[in-house]
């Protein structure tokens, strides 16, 4: 047996707990936004804006900040928040490993985060 130590492995679970909470919060916020969008669209169909193409991430943020809470914006906001939820949980794990002083896995989480961030930045330059 190399570094098999069930006792030491069993006591470090702070990262798991916090990651779980972040995922749960992400799911509830995104589901709430999507439900609100669907309900507004169903209850008041006249407010439904014609969907033509996906907004950019920046465009969506601008719509939200300008107080435009039409059904399409709410649905997109829910979907985009859901897409960001795994990114938030990678950041949480990175911080959690840092608190546990597990620097190897801080580095591993940082690589995953860099790949995801690079991919998000790349997607912002794509024209639909």
């Amino acid at each position: 047996m190399s570094d098999f130590n069930p006792i030491s492995n069993n006591v470090k679970h702070g990262t798991e707990r916090w990651t779980s909470r972040v995922l749960r919060i992400g799911v509830w916020i995104s589901a709430s936004l999507m439900i609100t969008g669907v309900l507004i669209g169903k209850i008041i169909p006249s407010t439904m804006i014609e969907y033509s193409s996906n907004p950019t991430l920046g465009g969506l943020a601008m719509r939200m900040l300008s107080g435009s809470f039409d059904p399409v914006t709410m649905m997109f906001a829910g979907l985009v928040f859901l897409m960001f939820t795994p990114v938030f949980r990678v950041i949480t794990a990175l911080i959690g490993f840092g608190v546990e002083r597990d620097w190897r896995f801080v580095a591993v989480s940082a690589v995953v985060l860099i790949l995801l961030t690079g991919e998000i930045v790349y997607s912002m330059f794509i024209k639909g």
């Binding site: 990678v90 995801l116 998000i120 639909g128």
Partner: peptide, 20 residues
């Protein structure tokens, strides 16, 4: 979830995400 998120942004940017 993370694997899917990695490609979700690209599909979103290409306009394949129908909100409804």
């Amino acid at each position: 979830g993370v694997t899917a998120a990695a490609s979700a942004f690209i599909y979103f940017a290409h306009g394949h995400l129908n909100p409804f």
